[in-house]
Simulated scan of single mutants.
Amino acid sequence: MNGATDDVNQAIAGELQLMDPRVRASRERAARLLDPEFVEVGGSGRRWTYESMLAELADHPGSSAAGPHYEPSKMSGVLLAPGLVHLTFETVLGERRTRHSSIWRRSDRSADWRMYYHQATRVPPGAD
């Protein structure tokens, strides 16, 4: 496996972990996957920061073992530069389908990949 493929696969593994209800329900586990400079623009248009996301993630849909879970598909990624991966994918959560774009980075201070940026866009019913 070449370095670019390995980096993309590590970012994908992190993305999948963030969809796991056990990780979403744990501030400590989620904090290890989000970059301290994390920013998200959610499907609602709300802007999230590292602190606001960690404060509320456990209450978001997909965070309960008893509730609906994220079903990802069409996940792919590209190495943009050393230590920087861009992922795109879709999810279904209950009846809601969403398209996602995320940027994962690995800093010189850490060997771990962390989500730096995330954008979610809801897909209207019937849209391709």
Rank of each mutant, 00 (worst) to 15 (best):
N2D: 04
T5F: 00
D7R: 10
D7A: 15
Q10V: 02
A11T: 02
M19P: 03
V23P: 01
R24E: 03
R27E: 08
R27G: 05
R29Q: 13
A30L: 08
A31Q: 00
L33I: 12
D35N: 15
E37R: 15
G42N: 13
G42Q: 09
R47V: 13
Y50Q: 08
Y50M: 09
S52K: 13
A55W: 13
L57Q: 13
H60L: 15
S63G: 14
S63M: 12
A66L: 13
G67L: 09
P68A: 13
E71A: 15
S73G: 12
S73Q: 12
S73T: 15
K74F: 00
K74S: 09
S76P: 02
S76R: 15
S76E: 14
G77Y: 10
L79P: 01
L80V: 03
L80P: 01
A81Y: 09
H86R: 12
H86T: 01
H86L: 14
E90R: 10
T91F: 03
T91I: 07
V92W: 04
L93Q: 11
G94P: 09
G94F: 11
H100Q: 05
S102W: 03
S102C: 08
I103D: 01
I103S: 09
D108F: 15
S110P: 04
D112F: 13
R114G: 04
R114K: 14
R114H: 07
M115H: 11
Q119S: 07
A120I: 03
A120P: 02
P124E: 08
P125A: 14
A127F: 10
